[in-house]
Design a protein around this nucleic acid. Structure first.
Lengths: 233, 233
DNA sequence: CGAGAACCGGACATGGTGTCCATATGGCTG
DNA sequence: CAGCCATATGGACACCATGTCCGGTTCTCG
């Protein structure tokens, strides 16, 4: 997975607000995430040792996020596990969340591409209700497979600063608009809210619900909200 | 507000899970929150200086939560602002969240009482759809008035450990069941998710939506989900 | 093959956490 | 009313995590 130079260029600047304003570092890339250039060869050619270390870091972080509570993974631990110094880590990533984001990036991008140009019902062509339902299926699938990373990357309010969230938001807003839902701007975040990683974790692991039940509940609710409405109030 | 000895007895033990299991301190009180005994006079009589200090702490914390980002309020700041030592704070509250919880407690309790025995549509007597709609109105009202406290108390996954959440969950689950919604256990948390303080804050202050729009979107969606369904799938 | 740039990681300063213990204070009893 | 004991108090301590800096090392290009 971490073989396609996932972040050599500048995709760590995807919008997490560290604390108060003050644009982090490289505030180019205004696009949500989405920047479909398969393999641009990095601005100045990455040094071999740097690449090797980045891979080690990514691999170690992946492991840590998976094996321990992703929300309490620390830069120190990652550095130790990867066998590099902390400063080396900070050179590339400002915090654990951005490492999780880097690991998550390609998976999210994949879903995004399917949404934009894949086959229906996830891609264009189906009815808004069907697309919204398919979106929920895809998202719960993503959550199920990479929950630890999502917990590491998009917890709490950080979620809303993510480039990924901007993308999901745009998409859902469009679907709700097409479906004729009253106030799409206000509805969108309500529709997206159950996909917060904390909610999914609570349902799956505290409540013990199966993935299928969670997914089906969301699908049902998607259809109910965006489906043809035979005379609503 | 903080005049009725809001927490002299033992309501700080309302279920926040600090990190990993290990029941905090006073694991009596298994009830959600709800413990309607107007003014039981505290186990052993609280010392006067203790009472005075607790009031000072509560007042200072309230101010801090309101004036600065509630999620970054620290025990140190509260102690300094209240003019007491840190250890004094720790004696009563394990972390800032539990202080926010204490401040929030009576407001939430009030809503809970209205739900249990107030007039319809919030209280018993109305249709499930109407009650769910009224619930959302009451909740957004609570969020609007005390967002800073909720952000301090129920952020991220902490929300789910709260006694309050258990109560809301029970109530919504019942309404959804009555309304004939398919899998209430899975639906409930999806319905509750948009009421997470981070979501509300994002809608109100990042997006700039009015309270009315947010509320109405939730009300619409509540009716849509729990309303009479002319032949659902 | 050598010079310069990029990278590395140990060390430092800072700030928050949670706990301990000697001291001060309040409430009860004789 | 005085004295005692339990409780409350807060300064100090040890720990952990964060970010940053700088001297030394390693790579790449000419």
């Amino acid at each position: 997975m971490a073989n396609g130079l996932p972040d050599s260029g500048g995709n760590r600047a995807n919008g997490r607000a560290p604390s108060e304003g003050a644009v982090p570092v490289g505030a180019d890339r205004e696009l949500p995430v989405l920047d479909l250039e398969p393999g641009r060869p990095a601005p100045v050619r990455e040094r071999a040792d740097a690449a090797r270390n980045r891979m080690r870091v990514l691999k170690a972080a992946e492991k840590l996020f998976a094996e321990t509570d992703a929300r309490h993974v620390t830069m120190d631990e990652i550095a130790k596990a990867a066998g590099v110094g902390r400063a080396t880590l900070y050179r590339r990533y400002p915090d654990p969340a951005s490492i999780a984001t880097a690991l998550l990036d390609e998976h999210e991008r994949q879903v995004q591409e399917h949404i934009l140009s894949g086959p229906p019902p996830l891609g264009p062509g189906a009815s808004p209700a069907d697309r919204l339902a398919a979106f929920h299926v895809a998202m719960t699938d993503l959550l199920e497979r990479h929950l630890h990373l999502v917990l590491g990357a998009e917890t709490g309010s950080a979620r809303f600063g993510t480039g990924a969230y901007r993308f999901w938001r745009l998409h859902v807003r469009m679907l709700l608009t097409e479906a004729g839902v009253p106030d799409p701007d206000a509805m969108t975040d309500a529709v997206l809210a159950p996909l917060a990683p904390e909610v999914y974790q609570f349902q799956r692991h505290t409540l013990g619900l199966s993935q299928a039940r969670v997914t089906e509940a969301l699908v049902w609710s998607a259809r109910r909200l965006a489906g043809h409405d035979p005379g609503r109030a």
